[in-house]
Design a binder for these strands. Structure first.
Ligand SMILES: NC(=O)c1ccc[n+]([C@@H]2O[C@H](COP(=O)([O-])OP(=O)(O)OC[C@H]3O[C@@H](n4cnc5c(N)ncnc54)[C@H](O)[C@@H]3O)[C@@H](O)[C@H]2O)c1
Ligand SMILES: NC(=O)c1ccc[n+]([C@@H]2O[C@H](COP(=O)([O-])OP(=O)(O)OC[C@H]3O[C@@H](n4cnc5c(N)ncnc54)[C@H](O)[C@@H]3O)[C@@H](O)[C@H]2O)c1
Lengths: 235, 235
DNA sequence: GTCCCTTTGTGAACCGATGCACAAAGTGAG
DNA sequence: CTCACTTTGTGCATCGGTTCACAAAGGGAC
C-alpha cells in the first residue's frame, strides 16, 4: 500500500496552514503578473511575510509541488492553492444589513476578484429596501430564505446591528447555510457543523491598545511596584 | 520574598489571552447592564463562547480576582480588564483613506464606545479633502505628520488602496506611531517594535470557502481516489 | 556519465496553548 | 464551630504549531 504521495493531502490540512494559503496565493498572483515563472520558498516566504521553513511545510500539506534545486512553478502553484481553497468554483455571497458597513462591502471590488460574487443584499429598513447598490437591488429581509435558495447562496456576510445578528444567523442556518462571516460584535451561538468567522474592529483596537500601553509603560520606567496594587480600588 | 500574588501578573500575559480579554469585557458589560453583581467562570465562559477552564486560566494571568465559592465581582472585573487592556486611558486614532471603508469606520459608533476617539481623517484625493464626516474635517495627506503630532495620535487605521499602504505606513512610523490596524490587502514590512494587525475580508472568505468545499465534498462522497490526482494537470 | 550547487521536503526538538481534574479556599446553614 | 457545598486557581498531560537542520532530489556544467 503506497500512501506516501497522497498521505500528506489525506485528511485535513492544519487550520493554521489554511489561514496562510490565501496569503501565499496573493503573493503568487503578484509574481505571476510580474512574469516570474518559478519562485523559491525563500522568496515566496519573504513576499508573504513568513519564515521559509513554515512555507515549505505548509505547501507540503497540499502535495509535493516543488522541484528541488529550482523552486515552485508560479502558475502551477497558483492553480493548486486555488483548487485547494475552493476558488476554482464560484461562490454566491449574500450581505445582510446594508448600512454603513454593508454598503462598503457591497462596493468592494476585491470581493469579486476571487471566485466570490455578491448575489444578494438584504435589509430590514423599508428606506433601504429597493435601493440600487453596486448594481444590485436591496431586498427585504422577509425574502431572506427565498433569496438564499433561489440564488444558491452558500456564504452569508452579517453586517446588521449586534441585536439582530443572532436571529438572522438562525434563519440562514435553517435554510442550510453553514458558512457565516460576522461583523456584528456578538458571540453567535450556532450548531455543530456551522463555520463562523468574525471580524471585530473593536477587538483589534483593544489588542493594539494593550501593546501600546505596554510599550509606553516601559518607556516611563513601568509602573512602580508599589503602585501596581493600589490596595482595594473601590468601585 | 513573597511573589505569590504578583507572580502571575509579572512579565507578560499570553497573546492568546490578550486576544480574548475584549471578549470577556464585552460579555461583562452586558451583565453589568443587566444588573448582575457577580458571575461564575462557568456563566461568563458561556457568554463569551469559551471553555470555563480557559477563562479561569486567562483571568488568573491578571491576578486573583475571584472569590471561591462565589465567582467574580462583575464591576471589579470590568475595571481590572479595562485597566489591563489600557482602556482607562483615551486613545486618539487617525483613519487614513476615507473611501467606502474609511467612511464606514468613521461613522461607526462602537469605535468611540471604548476609549477610542477618532481624532483625524486623512485622504489624498482633493475631492474628498474638506468633506465633513462624522463631525470631522477630512485633511490632506500632506498634513499627515503634523496632524499626528498635533493630535497625539497613537493608533493609525489604514484604509487606503493596497498600493498606498506601505508608503503611508512608513510615514506614520517615522513620526513615532507603533500601532497600526491595516485593512489593505498587503503584507506591510515594518521595523521591529511596530505592531501591525490586519483585517482582511478576502482571506476570511477564502477560509470559509475552503471549509465549505470540504463539507460539500463530503456530502457527495468526496473526490474519488482516482480523480484526486488528475496526473499532470497542465497549465 | 560524474560532480557540484541549489533548494525541497520532513524528522525531531521545542514552545505556547488547551483542557482535565482536583486541592484549596471560601460561603452559608445549623 | 462544624459540615456540606460551591467555585476558584493551577499542576499536569496533551496537542497543534513553529523552527531548526539536514538528507534526498534535481539541475547544469563539463
Ligand atoms: N461601520 C463599521 O465600520 C463597523 C465596524 C465594525 C463593526 N461594525 C458592526 O457591523 C454592523 C453594521 O454596522 P453599520 O455601521 O453598517 O451599522 P448600520 O446601522 O449603518 O447598518 C445596519 C443595517 O442593518 C439593517 N438591519 C437592522 N436589523 C436588521 C435585520 N433584522 N435584518 C436585516 N437588516 C437589518 C439596518 O436597517 C441597517 O441598514 C454592526 O453590528 C456594527 O457593530 C461596523
Ligand atoms: N470596502 C471594503 O469593504 C473593503 C473590504 C476589505 C478591504 N478593503 C480594503 O480597504 C482599502 C480601502 O477600501 P475602499 O473600498 O474604501 O477603497 P476606496 O477606493 O473607496 O477608498 C480609498 C481611499 O483612499 C484614498 N487614498 C488613496 N491613496 C491615498 C494615499 N496615498 N494617502 C491617503 N489616502 C489615499 C483615496 O482617495 C480613497 O478615498 C482597500 O485597500 C481595500 O482593498 C476594503
Amino acid at each position: 500500500m503506497i500512501r506516501r504521495l497522497s498521505q500528506a493531502r489525506e485528511r485535513g490540512i492544519p487550520e493554521a496552514t489554511v489561514a496562510r494559503l490565501p496569503l501565499y496565493l496573493r503573493a503568487l498572483n503578484g509574481m505571476a503578473e510580474r512574469g516570474l515563472a518559478t519562485v523559491s520558498s525563500e522568496d515566496l516566504a519573504v513576499a508573504a511575510g513568513v519564515n521559509s521553513a513554515k512555507l515549505r511545510k505548509d505547501l507540503s500539506h497540499l502535495g509535493s509541488y516543488g522541484t528541488r534545486g529550482v523552486g515552485y512553478d508560479v502558475e502551477y502553484l497558483v492553480y493548486q492553492i486555488s483548487r485547494e481553497l475552493g476558488l476554482t468554483q464560484d461562490w454566491a455571497v449574500a450581505i445582510v444589513g446594508v448600512g454603513n458597513l454593508g454598503r462598503a462591502l457591497a462596493n468592494y471590488g476585491g470581493f469579486v476578484s476571487r471566485g466570490f460574487r455578491v448575489a444578494a443584499l438584504l435589509d430590514a429598513d423599508p428606506e433601504v429596501v429597493g435601493d440600487h447598490i453596486a448594481g444590485l437591488n436591496v431586498e427585504h429581509i422577509d425574502e431572506l430564505e427565498a433569496v438564499i435558495r433561489r440564488r444558491g447562496v452558500s456564504i452569508v456576510v452579517l453586517a446588521t446591528p449586534a441585536a439582530a445578528a443572532q436571529q438572522v444567523a438562525e434563519r440562514v442556518i435553517a435554510v442550510g447555510v453553514t458558512s457565516i462571516l460576522n461583523f456584528a460584535p456578538v458571540v453567535l451561538a450556532v450548531p455543530e457543523g456551522v463555520d463562523i468567522r468574525k471580524v471585530d474592529l473593536s477587538i483589534e483596537l483593544q489588542i493594539l491598545a494593550f501593546h501600546e500601553q505596554r510599550k509606553t509603560d516601559r518607556m516611563t520606567g513601568g509602573p512602580a511596584m508599589a503602585e501596581e496594587w493600589p490596595e482595594a480600588v473601590d468601585l
